[in-house]
Structures are given as C-alpha cells and as structure tokens.
C-alpha cells in the first residue's frame, strides 16, 4: 500500500489523499483570514534541497510545532463545523505521522539533525515575529506547502 518514506523513517497508515481533501475543504476559509501576504513561513530555505535522511528530523520538528502551537488553539476560534471536521482529520493524521517518526539519535547523525534544526529555527523565528494569532492563521494556511513537500516522500 502507499506509505511515506522519509529517509530511514517509514510511515504507514496515512492516506495522503485524505489529508489533501481535508485541507482543500477549508483552504479558502483559512487562507482568506491571512492578511499578511508579504510573509511566508515555510519559505524555500526551510524546505528546499532537504536530503531524505534530513527530512525525518525536519518533518518531526515541524509536525510537533504544528500540533503543539499552530493547531492547539485554532479550534476555539473555528466555530464552523466543516472546518472542525477537516481540522480533526489533519490534526489526527499529523499526530499519527509525528508519532511514527523516530529519527536516529546517534552521534554520526549530528550534522544532519543540526541542519534540520537550523531549517526549523528559520521557520520558528519567522513565526515568532508575527502576532500569535496571525502566525497561527498563516501557518495553518501554509499546510498545502507542507503537504506538497511531504508528497515527494510518498510512495
């Protein structure tokens, strides 16, 4: 069956198609609330030229950030039940993926994990430069950028 292969990290049990359908169902509503069009959090320096091995470290950091910071308070503001349903699909599947990403912690992987950490910090710094609600809305609206990047590792 289809699965993700982020370098050594293999993730089964998630249908990428379901994630796309969930995001598309709320994309217009979510992205319409993002008024800061001059800023992009998941910019090229974060996601471009990421090696397979590095991808597991980077995605784990990004997904944990989404789960703990971006998604966490989002539902309180999203009264629309269509958004809540799509949000739940995304959040729970991101939760599954993040729990299955177990990158190696061995010393020889330090340079790779450090490179992933620097990329993640670029994203996190950009996030922190915005007002928290504006940053959450923008990051949520950029889930399609993240899914597009993840698609590269879907087999």
């Amino acid at each position: 069956g289809q699965e993700f292969q982020f370098g050594p990290c293999r993730v089964e049990g998630v249908a990428l198609q379901e994630l796309w359908e969930a995001f598309r169902a709320m994309k217009d509503i979510v992205q319409a609330k993002d008024n800061i069009t001059s800023v992009r959090l998941l910019r090229k320096e974060v996601l471009q030229n990421v090696s397979d091995t590095e991808s597991c470290y980077l995605l784990r950091a990004l997904l944990k950030f989404y789960l703990n910071t971006v998604f966490k308070n989002y539902l309180d503001k999203a009264a629309d039940s269509r958004i809540r349903k799509s949000f739940s699909t995304l959040a729970n599947n991101f939760f599954v993926i993040a729990s299955k990403l177990q990158p190696s912690q061995e010393k020889e992987m330090f340079s790779i994990s450090e490179s992933a950490r620097r990329r993640f910090l670029l994203f996190q710094r950009a996030f922190k430069q915005l007002d928290i609600q504006a940053a959450q809305t923008k990051a949520f609206g950029e889930v399609d950028i993240l899914l597009t990047w993840m698609e590269r590792f879907y087999q």
């Binding site: 539902l75 039940s81 959040a91």
Partner: peptide
C-alpha cells in the same frame, strides 16, 4: 459528537458534531 486522539489530548473541551 466525536473526538479524535488529538482533540482528547490537546483540547479535550472540543467535540465535533457527526457529519
């Protein structure tokens, strides 16, 4: 109404109406 694992761990006050 339903709640996935994410909601019950991160926002347990949130329940989603069934489709």
């Amino acid at each position: 109404e339903y709640q996935g694992e994410y909601e019950s761990l991160y926002m347990s006050h949130i329940w989603i109406p069934s489709s």
